[in-house]
Design a protein around this nucleic acid. Structure first.
Lengths: 124, 124
DNA sequence: AGATTACATTCATCTTTCTGAATATAACTC
DNA sequence: GAGTTATATTCAGAAAGATGAATGTAATCT
């Protein structure tokens, strides 16, 4: 009798709203913890806990850059799993449902800078 | 903040080896409980419990025919989810890994009868 | 070195889920 | 209606997971 250990580990890791939301925030590339904190509106320690779960499940890896630690999805195939589930549940594409947020990391600040450029025709 | 309730419910239902095995046994069509019992080698009450979980998760439906109750998968899309996970985990197609078994239900007995037909060229 | 920033871990409590034993139900046979 | 067969539910103890508070660590800056 097969035990489906890897599958169970994956399903358990995905059985949590915060962890799914984290994966969605990482769908388009790495993000720092403070960015996840700002986007999810949850306490930092709590997010770190959930990141730990995803890391232990082999879904995430991290990279330090100065003060910040950037998390990324190791295997993009996890999004195929998520998408097939959204297909079943009728949930719309998630990217559009999470409010974008910014934090103090260099990544966000450069994006901020870009967004804050006021088009000239509005000024006139 | 999205709660992903349906997704969580689905992931939790799939986070169990017996329940995955049941779904695999139903991949090619309905089966009676006694057949699942024979194939999985687990006690009947236990299998009924797991069937109940899958039913409450909206994954299965049942149909009574005389003494037997036949379970079937309601939404075939669940196999797309499973297959995408097997893709991630590197698990081979499961159908071939579960030992076929027979029970006393009419379904199995007719299959038995077919299998027991001895080709004439072997007899000669 | 000391203070600060960003992130991680530990610990205790509470809730949920798992598991197995026992019992219940529902349809059929005689 | 009594007995049998097939399946379902209930219940209690054990295990696992969720949650939040507090604390720890590691890199950076002055």
């Amino acid at each position: 009798m097969i035990e489906y250990k890897k599958e169970i580990q994956l399903f358990k890791a995905l059985s949590h709203p915060t962890r799914i939301a984290i994966l969605e925030l990482l769908r388009n590339g790495e993000q720092c913890v403070c960015h996840l904190e700002a986007s999810l509106g949850l306490r930092q320690a709590y997010i770190s806990q959930q990141l730990g779960v995803l890391r232990k499940a082999g879904l995430l890896a991290k990279r330090r850059d100065g003060w910040n630690i950037y998390y990324r999805v190791l295997n993009k195939e996890v999004f195929a799993v998520l998408d097939s589930v959204y297909q079943m549940t009728g949930t719309p594409k998630i990217e559009q449902t999470i409010t974008p947020a910014t934090c103090t990391c260099p990544h966000c600040e450069s994006e901020d800078a870009q967004m804050l450029v006021i088009p000239e025709d509005i000024l006139s």
